[in-house]
């Protein structure tokens, strides 16, 4: 069950899904507010913390009667997996935390380096604003789905990283201002921490921090560079996931 992070939608997994499907059944979804999810289901109250997203993950497991799943959480979704597995360990046979960060903001008081300051996050919000100028007018009808206008389908695939700007702002805050360092110890299911080389978003010591805090977890550093190994190195990423699945079966 791969869960996409902040920025895009389930298309992020497009390159690894065919590889995973050789070994596993894959359940894909868009977080509420992203991709082709029902935007009317989004509310500021529910999605202003990771709890709303975490509940969604558990609801999907429950609704589809999936039995224990291997949850693959990329970036912020890794922490959704941590919270979900802490709450209902029985729903998970394992967690793969891909390029995770329990806290993006530096905490000098305890010597924790997340890589960013609160001001940096404000700057990201400005970047979001600067790139959403034309959103509401032009993109909303496309994103909302136009079954009677199939020609918009092409445009939709070209816009999978676009989200309603209000929703994106709230999700950006949740992503970059959440602090889940204390939640890591509550994970009891087998866990693989897979970090990238040269990740501009999650520095290497963050991966080590996560591994050290989750009892019995294992850390691998992928050769993939950047923050999105599922795009940069789909084979390596898929292999790390399927090896883990095989080991936890």
């Amino acid at each position: 069950m791969p869960a996409h992070g902040f920025g895009c939608d389930q298309h992020m997994w497009r390159l690894v899904v065919p590889l995973l499907e050789r070994e596993c059944t894959v359940v894909l979804f868009d977080h509420v507010g992203a991709g082709r999810s029902d935007l009317s289901a989004w509310s500021r109250e529910r999605y202003s913390t990771l709890d709303g997203y975490t509940e969604d993950v558990l609801e999907i497991c429950d609704e589809l009667a999936l039995g224990p799943v291997t949850f693959v959480g990329h970036s912020v979704s890794a922490m959704m997996g941590v919270l979900a597995a802490a709450r209902e360990p029985k729903a998970f046979s394992g967690l793969v935390l891909l390029a995770p960060s329990p806290c993006f903001i530096d905490d000098p008081a305890v010597g924790y380096r997340g890589g960013f300051s609160a001001e940096d996050i404000d700057e990201l919000l400005e970047s979001l604003d600067a790139n959403y100028l034309g959103w509401s007018g032009a993109m909303a009808p496309v994103i909302m789905g136009n079954p009677e206008r199939p020609e918009l389908g092409e445009e939709l695939t070209n816009s999978f990283c676009r989200t309603d700007p209000d929703i994106a702002r709230v999700f950006a805050r949740v992503t970059f201002l959440s602090d889940n360092r204390e939640d890591l110890a509550a994970v009891t299911v087998p866990t693989l921490v897979a970090q990238c080389s040269g990740d501009a978003i999650a520095p290497p010591e963050v991966g080590a921090f996560v591994q050290a805090r989750i009892p019995g977890s294992r850390l691998v550093t992928l050769n993939a560079t950047g923050h999105c190994p599922q795009l940069a190195a789909p084979e390596e990423t898929a292999a790390a996931i399927t090896d883990f699945v095989a080991a936890t079966r």
Partner: peptide, 13 residues
């Protein structure tokens, strides 16, 4: 830094 975050989460993918 903000641009880098945007680059990693939107532009790159």
């Amino acid at each position: 830094v903000g641009g880098r975050l945007y680059h990693e989460t939107h532009f790159g993918p």
